[in-house]
């Protein structure tokens, strides 16, 4: 490789390296959804391809962070059985996220929801 090729390679890697070094580890996931985009139901609905699930609670919007409390696999809500299922080790939770069966002992963790200007602002819970 010539000197120029090395120089180009070095200059091109400045941006990725600086992004990498400025990146924050343990960054918590956030989401913002327009209220009109997601009409809420009594049953849990997943927001896009995220781990956020939303439903209309008794008096307010509720959000669930769909990570199994056993080893952190992504759980999903089975609306027919009305329970949360973990694909990894078969943990089951009831509709409110209380553990029913399997290795998981703790309940599913709720995500924080704020309503602002017609948007739901979601924040991953720090575990």
């Amino acid at each position: 490789m010539g000197r120029k090729a090395l120089l180009v390679l070095g200059v091109c890697s400045i941006y990725p390296v600086s992004r990498y070094l400025r990146g924050k580890e343990n960054q918590l996931a956030m989401a913002q959804i327009a209220r009109s985009e997601m009409p809420l139901q009594i049953k849990w609905q997943r927001h896009g391809q995220t781990r956020f699930w939303l439903r209309q609670g008794n008096d307010r919007v509720e959000a669930m962070w769909a990570s199994c409390t056993h080893l952190g696999c992504e759980v999903s809500y089975d609306s027919e059985q009305d329970q949360w299922v973990c694909p990894c080790h078969g943990s089951l939770y009831n509709r409110d996220g209380q553990p029913v069966l399997g290795p998981a002992l703790g309940p599913l963790v709720r995500a924080e929801v704020k309503e602002k200007d017609g948007f739901y602002l979601l924040q991953q819970p720090p575990v």
Binding site: P16, R19, Y20, L21, G23, K24, E25, N26, Q27
Partner: peptide
Amino acid sequence: FYYQPGERAFASLSELDSVLPYG
């Protein structure tokens, strides 16, 4: 800059893989 040996080794690497840009 991000790797932590010991207990946190696997966790720090999976965070590096999934969260950090270009990690």
